[in-house]
Design a protein around this nucleic acid. Structure first.
Length: 217
DNA sequence: CTCCCGATAT
DNA sequence: ATATCAGGAG
């Protein structure tokens, strides 16, 4: 596991490489963001944006999603994948927003995670991006990067990864770090073909050094 | 733990 | 052909 100084170095490199990292899910209000993040499970945000471009023209409010049949909503998000679960969750979520929050998206993580289809990661994204609450959402990229760099342990659950990151990253840097780690994982430390040869963190990265020796690139 | 699942890159 | 993609529910 990296020490405090080494983690600090990682954060600085992330900042050098991706100073403008931000949420890439297109949205114009908290409600659209919740829908977009819910749809983004096991799916690229490029594809989510392609679908939400038309989706957000057709559906503006929770009432709009409840006004059509389940089958129609499924068709409108079909190309996303996992569309039956997602359509069902969107409808439940919209009903909950109307019943319990006056049609508005709640602002705290505790309330957000109670919504249908909204787990810890989605709640963190919404709290962080829409309401500027400090949070580190651990998605597939953040988990992979944290584990490869040994910022956390290999066997850690996603919750443990989040807790470790919250402990090791200053709270005022949680949100930027979360976005920078996603960019680092998405565009550089990729799941399939990580760019270890050009990685400024190779010295620190046991995993990267192992991959370099294996001679596969 | 399994299941949900289409699009894309490799 | 197969791995991977801003996961969550049962």
């Amino acid at each position: 596991m990296l020490n405090k100084m080494q983690v600090r170095h990682c954060l600085d490199i992330f900042g050098d490489m991706f100073p403008n990292a931000k949420c890439e899910l297109t949205h114009s209000n908290p409600f659209e963001l919740v829908i977009a993040v819910l749809l983004s499970a096991q799916c690229t945000d490029v594809l989510v944006n392609k679908v939400t471009r038309e989706l957000f023209q057709k559906y503006k409010t929770p009432e709009d999603y409840l006004a059509v049949t389940l089958e129609e909503l499924q068709q409108d998000i079909r190309s996303i994948g996992l569309y039956r679960n997602k359509a069902k969750n969107i409808r439940k979520l919209c009903q909950m927003l109307l019943d319990e929050y006056g049609g508005e998206v709640p602002e705290t993580k505790e309330e957000l995670v109670k919504l249908a289809g909204v787990g810890r990661k989605t709640a963190n994204v919404v709290a962080s991006v829409a309401f500027e609450e400090p949070a580190i959402a651990v998605d597939t990229h953040v988990e992979r990067v944290a584990k490869r760099l040994a910022i956390c342990r290999w066997k850690d659950s996603v919750l443990e990864v989040e807790q470790t990151l919250m402990k090791k990253v200053p709270i005022e840097e949680w949100s930027v770090t979360h976005h920078r780690m996603i960019f680092f994982g998405r565009y550089h430390c990729k799941a399939k073909n990580p760019n270890c040869p050009e990685c400024p963190l190779l010295e620190l990265c046991r995993e990267g050094q192992k991959r370099m020796k294996k001679r596969k690139m």
